[in-house]
Amino acid sequence: MKILVTGTAGFIGSHLAKRLLERGDEVVGLDNINDYYDLRVKYGRLERAGIESSSIEYGKLLSSATESNYRFVKLNLEDREALHALFEQEKFDKVCNLAAQAGVRYSLTNPYAYIDSNIVGFINILEGCRHFGVKHLAYASSSSVYGLNESMPFSTSDNVDHPISLYAASKKSNELMAHTYSHLYKIPTTGLRFFTVYGPWGRPDMALFLFTKAILEDRAIDVFNHGEMLRDFTYVDDIVEGVVRVIDNPPMGDPNWSGKHPNPGSSKAPYKIYNIGNNSPVRLMDFITEIEKNLGKVAKKNMLPLQMGDVPATYADVSDLVENLHYKPNTSIEEGIARFVKWYREFFRV
């Protein structure tokens, strides 16, 4: 298959592109390589796949030096004309949209970045799929859409109408927009609610990266909600396995779906939502203890209250994933953190 993967300078996108290439797919990667976090990590991910950073030009498709089936283009999703031209030229079989302005806390101070990338950019993706015969659109949603929901574990059949950050609201909007296109134009779409992804090549704005860096530099770490946060930490390889299975299994629509008792996670249209999480929430303090163990160093801690826009707990119900795709993430935090710390020390030479 020829697959467009957006966000391939990003954490999950870079891992997904590598996995698809390994199994023989043709991949076109797209990313705007913004400076939201350390560009060394973004360019490092691209160079790992044979994309030379010195050769990248906006709007120009660049062939990988090491992967014969991989090309990359630097592009903004909100660049409607350029994205339309890319879809018209390449005639993708499937699309996996992982590009987005990420981060809950950043949305408190930079709201327009989320509208541009996550709303305007997503409608441009949908229009490309509509006009150029894409057979399946898989896209990243987020566990943050559950917002004020306190029913645990979070289920895709739950109502998610109470987001508490603009980032979450933008992801909920993506799900609504996708359903509209699935209904009107019969485009199969699948939304993926990721739960706290971590692992090698991870995002520098995420807890594992921040904690590891601070501990090694002998700086205090900020521990929100006094360490009583619960997170369904999910290892990146588990996430990628789930995404690949989703890409390969476009939704057909549920003939038993009822508008009298509507299930928000499915539809009569070819539309589906999945949680991808470890289904085993971990206390933040236990997570920190595991990092300390791998670094051989105890962290200095600033104990702080819950931050605005954050939820105290996440916990994924993955029964749909198990039932429909016969898959459940299972990497332990002990194994995952050890792999991350090994990568971190090698990449930053510390």
Rank of each mutant, 00 (worst) to 15 (best):
I273R: 10
I273N: 08
I273P: 05
Y274I: 14
Y274D: 13
N275K: 11
N275T: 10
I276N: 08
I276V: 14
I276H: 09
I276Q: 10
I276K: 10
I276R: 09
N278Y: 13
N278M: 12
N279D: 15
N279H: 15
N279K: 14
N279Q: 14
S280C: 15
S280N: 15
S280T: 14
P281Q: 04
P281V: 05
P281F: 02
V282C: 06
V282R: 02
R283I: 04
L284T: 13
L284G: 06
L284Y: 15
L284S: 12
L284C: 14
L284V: 12
L284H: 14
M285G: 01
M285N: 06
M285D: 05
M285C: 05
F287R: 03
F287M: 07
I288T: 04
I288W: 05
I288K: 01
T289D: 11
T289K: 10
T289Y: 09
E290K: 02
I291M: 07
I291E: 04
I291R: 07
E292W: 05
E292Q: 02
E292D: 04
N294H: 15
N294P: 05
L295Q: 05
L295V: 02
L295Y: 09
G296F: 12
K297G: 11
K297V: 09
V298R: 15
V298H: 14
A299L: 08
A299C: 05
K301D: 03
K301H: 05
K301L: 11
N302T: 07
N302M: 10
N302P: 08
M303H: 09
M303S: 07
M303P: 00
L304M: 14
L304G: 03
L306A: 09
L306T: 08
M308F: 01
M308I: 07
G309L: 12
G309T: 13
G309P: 13
D310R: 07
D310I: 01
V311G: 00
V311E: 08
P312R: 11
A313M: 12
A313F: 06
A316W: 03
A316R: 04
A316Q: 03
D317V: 03
D317M: 02
V318N: 11
V318C: 10
S319Y: 10
S319C: 10
S319N: 14
S319G: 12
D320G: 10
L321P: 08
V322C: 03
V322E: 12
E323N: 15
E323G: 12
N324V: 04
N324G: 05
